[in-house]
Design a protein around this nucleic acid. Structure first.
Lengths: 225, 225
DNA sequence: CGTTAGGTTGATCTATGTCAAGTGGTGTGG
DNA sequence: CCACACCACTTGACATAGATCAACCTAACG
C-alpha cells in the first residue's frame, strides 16, 4: 500500500498541511478502495466515520428528493476530499456520493483525522478554507436555481465542466455524463435537458462525438440569456 | 463599551471557544455599531476585513442577480456571526447583508481573529462546525429550489421562520418580512408569493394581524404538496 | 437476434412569470 | 391639517417555460 507522506494527491487538499508524523500515522490506518463506475460510496443517512481522499476518478454528490429525482449538488474530482462536512459536524451524511468513473479512493477513519483537526491549527484552517469555498459555490448555485432559466443553467454547467475538469485530446469534455445527469445538475426533467442540448447543437455551440460533448463556441455559451 | 469576556451573546457562536485572554484582546479592538432597519451592512464585492457578531436584531444575506432580483440565501439572528466565509477565504463578500430590524453588532477586525484561528484549534474547529452547518443548509436549499413548487417552498419557509425565530406574544411570527422578502427567499415573483400567501390564508393555514403573519395550522402547512 | 437502457421528438398541460390596473396606508410639504 | 405622492399590497388577464406523457429510435449486450 502506498504511503500518504509520499502521495502527491494531498497537494490538492487540506491534507497537505499535516506534518510528516501525522501523515505517517494516517498512512498506517487508512484503507484504499477501488470503486466501480456507478457504485455508491455512501448514501444519505449513512454514518461515514471518516473522510475519503479521491486519488483518481470523479464522483457526484447528490440528494434524493421526495419526487424520486436526485439533485446533483457538487462534483468531486481527483485530489479532493469527500465526507468532511459529516466528519466535522459529526452527523450522518446528507448527500449521496456516486462514482461517475472507476475511482480509487483512500479512506481515513474519523478518529485519526479529528485529533489532527483539534491539534493542528494549520490543518483545520485549511479545511475551513475548503469549506468556505464550497459554501460560496453553494450560495451561487442557489441564486442560479432561483433566477436563471434551464437554458442558462445548462450553458453555465457546460462551461463549468469545461473549465474545471478539462477536455480530452479531441476537445470533448473529459467527464462523461448522461443526459439524466445533466438534468439533475440543472434541476430539470431529462427531456428538457435533452431539448436544450440539441438546441445548443443546432445553434453550433456544441457538437457530439460519440457520447461525448465538445464545446465549439464557448463565448456563445457565455452569451446565452 | 461592554466587554467581550462578559458578553453572553458569544455563547451562541464560535467565539465561546476563545480563551479569556483572547477575548480581552478582541474586546480592546472591536467596535460596536447600531444599524438601522433597511441599512446595508456590506454589499457584494466589499472587502469586509473582519467579522460581525450580531448582538441584537436580524439581517438577511442576499445576492443580486442580473435580472435585478436579490435572492435571500440566509437569515442571521442575534448570536450569530456574519462575514466568516469572507474572513476565512480572504475574499471579498459574495453576499449582501441588510438589516431587517434595528440591529446592534460588534465588528472584530480581521487581523485579530485570524491569529486566533491559527493558534486556537478549538476555536477554528468550532467555526468549522458552524460552516459545515451552513453548508448543509445551503445544500438542502439547492434541492428545494430545484425540486419543489413555490407553494411548498413558501410553506417550508413559514415553518422554518416559525421554528427558528419564534413568535410574538400574540402568536405572530416574530420576524416581519415584506411580501417581496418572502418572494426573494423562495425565489419567485412578488405577485406569486402574494397569491400563495392569500391562498394559505383562505385555506385557514395562516392569518394576518396587521402586517404580521400568524401560523394557524402548522400541520396543514407541513402537509402542503 | 431479442431485450434493455439511454436517447430523441412531438403533443399537451400547468405552474409561474409578467404586465396592468386599482386599493389602502403613511409620511411630507405646503 | 389637508392633499399629494409614494409605496406595499392585491387581484385579474395573459404569455410562456418547462413538466409530463407517449411513441419511437438506436446502440449495446447477453
Amino acid at each position: 500500500m502506498s504511503k500518504c507522506e509520499q502521495c502527491i494527491i494531498k497537494q490538492f487538499n487540506a491534507l497537505k498541511s499535516l506534518t510528516k508524523d501525522e501523515l505517517v500515522r494516517i498512512s498506517a490506518c487508512k484503507t484504499s478502495k477501488i470503486i466501480k463506475k456507478g457504485e455508491v460510496i455512501f448514501e444519505e443517512g449513512d454514518t461515514i466515520n471518516g473522510v475519503y481522499c479521491v486519488k483518481d476518478g470523479i464522483c457526484k454528490l447528490s440528494k434524493l428528493s421526495e419526487n424520486g429525482k436526485d439533485q446533483i449538488v457538487k462534483m468531486v474530482v481527483k485530489g479532493q476530499l469527500i465526507g468532511q462536512r459529516s466528519l466535522v459536524s459529526n452527523q450522518s451524511a446528507n448527500l449521496q456520493a456516486t462514482a461517475l468513473n472507476d475511482m480509487e479512493v483512500c479512506f481515513i477513519p474519523r478518529s485519526e483525522i479529528i485529533s489532527d483537526l483539534q491539534k493542528n491549527p494549520k490543518f483545520s484552517f485549511d479545511m475551513l478554507k475548503d469549506m468556505a469555498n464550497d459554501l460560496r459555490e453553494a450560495d451561487d448555485i442557489i441564486v442560479n436555481m432561483a433566477q436563471k432559466s434551464v437554458r442558462q443553467r445548462l450553458a453555465e454547467t457546460l462551461i463549468y465542466i469545461h473549465e474545471s475538469f478539462g477536455v480530452n485530446p479531441d476537445g470533448t469534455l473529459s467527464i462523461l455524463l448522461s443526459r439524466e445527469d445533466y438534468a439533475n445538475i440543472v434541476g430539470t426533467a431529462t427531456e428538457s435537458a435533452i431539448r436544450v442540448l440539441s438546441q445548443f447543437k443546432k445553434e453550433g455551440m456544441i457538437s457530439t462525438i460519440g457520447k461525448f460533448i465538445k464545446i465549439e463556441d464557448i463565448n456563445a455559451l457565455r452569451r446565452v440569456e
